Amino acid sequence: MNIEVNEHTVAPQREVFADKDTLTRTVASRLLQVLRRTIEADGSAHVSLTGGGAGIGTLSAVAEMLRENAETQLDWSAVHFWWGDERLLPARDPERNDQQARSALLDFLVAEHDLPEENIHAAPTSEDAANPTAAAQIYAQQLQAFSAEEGVVVPGSQKVLRLPVFAVMLLGVGPDGHINSLFPGKSSLAVSEVTTVGEEDSPKPPPQRVSLTFDAIHTAQRVWTVVAGEDKAEAVRLAFEPGTPTADIPAKNARGASETIWHIDQPAAAGLA
């Protein structure tokens, strides 16, 4: 399988932090700043969240900052939350990314900062969809409902997708180099011209999932990876190796339309020059 990196997106910068806490607090601070600027400019802001230790740690850091400092406040009623991928599990299952995000930040925002429940756009549950293909179709419809009429052009192509413009898309990176639920060697890597794809047999349990596609990722204004832990070091190294195939390390194709930043703690960066 030959999956080309989208060279019309912005090449990644990388920033290395001493530890996971410093990494997550830095990304949290930057996220608050971008959301504030986006709301001021556009009236609303859409952000795509990720699971995993660093992704959920970033959300916890946002909650800590809000509790610590009133100057970090913004109009949360203008912020919409989405997910780059989700496990096809029952509602309120603790393994779902949306439930982990709620525990870390979103329930706090609803209770204390006037975030409307309808601004939390969870991907379908196993009660909503019988299989990942059906879940992907439902999630695509949810995304389309918040698209501009003219859609969003995938950089460097004639493809037009119907989804919101994400001010920020947060991505974790697995030890195998996967992002969202786009895993090495899987046919989902080649899915094009649509926003979502189902995964029936994830190598990481649970097996059934729904994910944004590479095309959807590339429409985000800013793509930020948050990567922590020595178990990620080889994947990080390979992602920055010029000859690494995207089919082997999907994270190599994690790129945004106007900005791509890899935020990496020192253990995860151990293999970089």
Rank of each mutant, 00 (worst) to 15 (best):
A273M: 07
P124T: 13
E68T: 14
P94N: 08
A140W: 13
V168S: 02
V160M: 09
E64P: 09
S202Q: 06
R67G: 02
R255D: 05
P205W: 08
D201F: 09
R37M: 11
E150P: 15
V110K: 08
D98I: 13
A122V: 12
S192P: 01
E64T: 08
L143E: 12
E71V: 01
E64N: 10
G198Y: 01
T9P: 00
S60Y: 13
A45T: 06
E40D: 07
V47P: 13
G51F: 15
K204F: 08
S157T: 02
N2H: 05
V5L: 00
L23K: 02
T225G: 10
L115Y: 10
P184T: 07
A104M: 12
Q142K: 14
T225D: 14
L105G: 09
R102T: 15
I3P: 03
A70V: 05
A235F: 14
E199Y: 04
P116S: 09
I264T: 12
S258A: 00
W76M: 04
L163A: 01
L35E: 00
V34W: 06
R255G: 01
R237Y: 15
M169P: 00
V168Q: 03
V5F: 00
A111R: 14
A130Y: 09
F108V: 12
R222F: 13
G51L: 15
G51K: 15
A270I: 01
H113E: 02
V16P: 02
Y139G: 11
A134E: 05
D107P: 07
S29K: 03
Q144H: 12
S188I: 02
I179A: 05
Q100Y: 10
T72S: 11
L35I: 02
H121M: 10
E71C: 01
T24A: 03
A148W: 11
H80N: 00
Q13W: 01
D85F: 02
R255L: 01
A78V: 00
L171C: 07
R102I: 15
H218C: 06
P90C: 06
V154P: 04
G185P: 12
E4P: 03
L272G: 02
T246N: 10
S181A: 05
E68R: 15
T260A: 02
A239T: 15
M169Q: 11
P245R: 07
I56W: 14
I39P: 06
K204N: 06
H218T: 07
A18Y: 01
D114K: 14
Q99L: 11
G174D: 14
P124C: 14
